[in-house]
Design a binder for these strands. Structure first.
Length: 809
DNA sequence: AGCACGCCGACT
DNA sequence: GTCGGCGTGCTC
């Protein structure tokens, strides 16, 4: 039998199946989806068995046998194997990369070289210098570490000279982190042979006969513990048979958790509002009818989307099926997790980045072993290895964190729909501010739109006030806080209510802004604000390559208040303390939440009322639900608006709506103050009026004009190299090639320098494709990669293709 | 990716 | 004449 394997070598040339012989002992255990260790050239690598075949087209003489079995049972299901091929295709990634992304990091292979004194060398004769490292004849050291420890080059050369002579170096394939290992017992002998051997055993070797009988009945490998239980034997029995060469023992990784006891306390679901009921009904129908359907649930902040999810999951579980819930990493707060645990008890596995590698692995195992039926997690949880999936929910579906920004560059939404189709189960995309792509699809009837416009218990949406920071400046207020915001803060302090201050600052790029009139430097060709580059003292557009020198006076109003905009939370804290010295501020940003559990601790503190103000970035925008928050202040609503990204307005609207939603979620009325230099911008005005539809329509119009999603698909080709002319040359060639191959209706832009034209001494250029219909695009892009594969492996050239970019850098 | 093979310059 | 530089090509 032949195992067809994808090896763990991430290159173009090795991105295909390699055939290996399956040794008799592994015959039963090697099935598609298991990992194996195989010899590959002069070394050993891990690989995924994709298929098992009877014959191979490769010369029998060239075939090598599988060396080691890594899993007892396949960690990847048939469905996931199938899916990996689609991921590989659609994201233009390597098959190996697509497979690895589906497994927890702890299962990734780790390669090392073990060094020991060569068994044919007498230890006594080994030089003293070497004995310093190898303290005994049996000592096993890590070869690379040994070389590092050796210090100077001379000693290293000595060690290398002794390699394969006095010192034996063996390649070893292990896995990340420590894992439970299990000894597997198997046999090479056929049942007939075993019967003969059994008969030949002495009459008093009862246990040994029992063991052989076990293998005659069931020849597949069995964990030693299971075998001993089955035959009520002891370890010595197996050992005796192993010594006789009848049985073999093999160490393999297990992810079977012995704690089988599953008990989940069902907690009563909450009563639904009419709107919630109406939204839930079609979802339940799809669950009951067992058909695939993608629902877009648009519900304003506080409208009780989570309760709809929970009840849909309840129905799914009642049908004996499983559910995946995706939540943006940032809102995977303890509050959220508790909500699921309370409803589904021990039936929930949680996968998020705050868990250690081992903890994630354990949670993943609980899914694979069917000890849980609900998986809640961030992006990668979309690959939860369920086999009877009945429901997929993506909360805050507009979140950009659902797009993976390195290979394989998949979007969780696409994977969800793919899996939903496979299992014929509903997919629910939920958001207060759906992505334009999703809402447009819902309007076209591709998705089914469900709407909830009211907050639970008829709590009112907060009042939103927009303060014009240009006005503040004209009135002589040069601080970063508007008079209105300071007044509102003082009022809350008096009433002992809490405040959230949100500083929206993303990325490192600053934009150029006129503090008198709000003018922002934009690219004349792209309607996108320019990024100020300090190194060249220039303003650049990375879509089309346009560059200009920053104006010293405002081109619009001739004023001289041109500023490079951007400030941090620390600065805000300082400034605020100058104005209100007694104020208690809890600051949440990357600096204060770096340590494990800090995030939770700070939120707890705030929840207990130990701070008046929660000041933070991105991370406080979502999932906060504290009854005492009655004021939300947004310090710089523009910060995101002028990012050089066609989704800038969309993200601004989404984020501001999201932040606003933190205020007045319970009895006390909420107020939101948004400070901006662009008070008339539709994305800010529509936040004030809580009008998603209005925003959607305006933004759609602009997208249509500019040829962006959802009207056009975008693909971005990133080219980088240490050599600038070469980078430009290659990008140009690719661009020209695409122009010759793609339809005239498709727009191709480039070559253009990236927003950050050089990172780590690599020059970066890109080419952008905007298209409506290009059935052969994937094929053509494959050709492009193929053309340059040789050059990429032997030089610094790198070409990365993103078929659905969210980060335009 | 690694690692060996192999074909040209600076040394014993 | 040999050691070793890293360009080229293969890995079932």
């Amino acid at each position: 039998m032949i195992a067809r394997v994808i090896v763990d070598v991430t290159t173009n040339q090795t991105d295909r199946l390699f055939d290996y012989l399956i040794p008799a002992p592994f015959q039963a255990a090697i099935v598609p989806g298991v990992r194996v260790v195989v010899p590959f050239g002069p070394r050993k690598v891990q690989g995924f068995v994709i298929e098992v075949a009877k014959t191979s087209t490769i010369d029998a003489g060239k075939l090598k046998p599988v060396e080691q079995l890594v899993d007892i049972e396949p960690p990847l299901t048939r469905e996931l194997l199938l899916l990996s091929e689609k991921v590989k295709e659609s994201t233009l990634s390597f098959h190996n990369t697509a497979l690895k992304v589906m497994l927890p990091a702890a299962m990734r292979a780790k390669y090392k070289k073990e060094a020991m004194i060569h068994p044919e060398t007498a230890y006594e004769l080994v030089a003293k210098e070497i004995k310093r490292y190898f303290t005994s004849a049996e000592a096993v050291l890590d070869w690379d570490e040994l070389l590092k420890k050796a210090g100077d080059a001379e000693k290293r050369l000595l060690l290398k000279a002794l390699k394969e002579k006095t010192i034996l170096v063996l390649p070893k394939v292990g896995t990340q982190g420590k894992k439970k290992k299990q000894t597997l017992v198997h046999t090479v002998r056929s049942p007939e042979e075993l019967a003969q051997l059994k008969a030949a055993l002495p009459a008093n070797a009862v246990k040994q006969q029992d063991v052989l009988q076990h293998f005659i009945d069931r020849p597949e490998p069995v964990p030693v513990a299971e075998l001993l239980e089955a035959v009520r034997g002891s370890r010595s029995t197996v050992k005796a048979l192993a010594d006789k060469g009848i049985l073999c023992l093999e160490e393999a990784e297990v992810w079977r958790d012995p704690y089988e006891g599953r008990h989940y306390e069902r907690q009563a679901s909450l009563p639904l509002m009419e709107e919630q009921r109406q939204a839930l009904e079609p979802i339940l129908q799809a669950i009951d009818g067992e058909y695939h359907r993608t629902f877009l649930l648009r519900g304003v902040t506080g409208s009780g989307k989570t309760e709809v999810y929970l009840q849909a999951i309840e129905r799914t579980l009642a049908k004996g099926k499983e559910a995946i819930v995706l939540v943006p990493e940032i809102s995977l707060t303890p509050q959220m997790v508790t909500r699921f645990k309370e409803r589904f008890g021990s039936d929930v596995a949680v996968l998020h980045s705050a868990l250690s590698m081992g903890e994630k692995y354990d949670e993943w195992r609980r899914i694979r072993e069917k000890q849980v039926r609900v998986a809640v997690g961030a992006r990668s949880a979309i690959f939860a290895p369920f086999e009877n999936l009945g429901m997929i929910i993506i909360d805050e579906e507009h979140e950009t964190s659902y797009k993976q920004e390195d290979a394989p560059r998949y979007h969780a939404r696409d994977i969800a729909i793919e899996r939903g189709e496979y299992y014929q189960c509903p997919v629910v995309l939920g958001s207060a501010t759906p992505s334009l792509e999703s809402f447009a699809r819902a309007r076209k009837g591709v998705y089914e739109l469900l709407t909830m416009e009211k907050r639970v218990n008829d709590v009112q949406l907060p009042d939103v006030t927009i303060t014009d920071m240009r006005e503040e400046l004209r009135n002589g207020n040069r601080s970063m806080f508007s008079a209105a915001l300071i007044a509102a803060i003082k009022q809350r302090l008096q009433r002992q209510e809490q405040i959230v201050l949100f500083l929206n600052r993303r990325g490192y790029s600053t934009f150029v802004l006129c503090r008198d009139c709000g003018y922002v430097a934009e690219c004349p060709h792209c309607d996108i604000s320019l990024t100020y580059h300090r190194t060249t003292h220039s303003l650049q557009c990375h879509y089309c390559g346009y560059t200009e020198t920053p104006p010293t006076r405002c081109p619009s109003c001739e004023g001289e208040s041109i500023r490079f905009f951007g400030f941090g939370t620390q600065k805000v804290e300082e400034e605020l303390k100058k104005i209100l010295p007694d104020i208690q501020i809890i600051r949440m940003d990357v600096d204060t939440t770096r340590t494990k559990g800090a995030h939770e601790k700070l939120l707890d503190q705030f929840g207990r009322g130990e701070g008046d103000i929660l000041l933070g970035t991105q991370m406080i925008a979502k999932g906060l639900d504290f009854p005492n928050i009655t004021l939300v202040g947004v310090l710089a609503a523009d910060a995101m608006l002028h990012l050089q990204d066609f989704r800038a307005a969309e993200r601004t609207f989404q984020l501001l709506t999201q932040v606003s939603g933190r205020a007045g979620r319970h009895e006390k009325a909420g107020e939101v103050i948004i400070q901006t230099y662009s008070p008339d911008h539709y994305s800010i005005q529509d936040v004030k009026s809580h009008d998603y539809l209005s925003f959607f329509q305006k933004e759609m119009l602009l997208r249509k004009q500019a040829g962006y999603p959802p009207y056009f698909y975008v693909t971005l080709i990133h080219v980088s190299d240490t050599d600038l002319p070469k980078t430009i040359e290659v990008t140009k060639k690719i661009t020209n090639y695409l122009r010759s191959k793609l339809s005239p209706a498709t727009k191709i832009y480039g070559p253009a320098a990236s927003a950050i034209p050089r990172i780590k001494d690599r020059y970066r250029y890109q080419c952008m494709i905007k298209y409506k219909v290009e059935p052969y695009l994937t094929k053509i892009l494959h050709e492009v990669v193929q053309t340059y594969q040789g050059e990429m492996s032997r030089s610094d050239l790198s070409i990365v293709i993103d078929t659905n970019p969210y980060m335009m850098l």
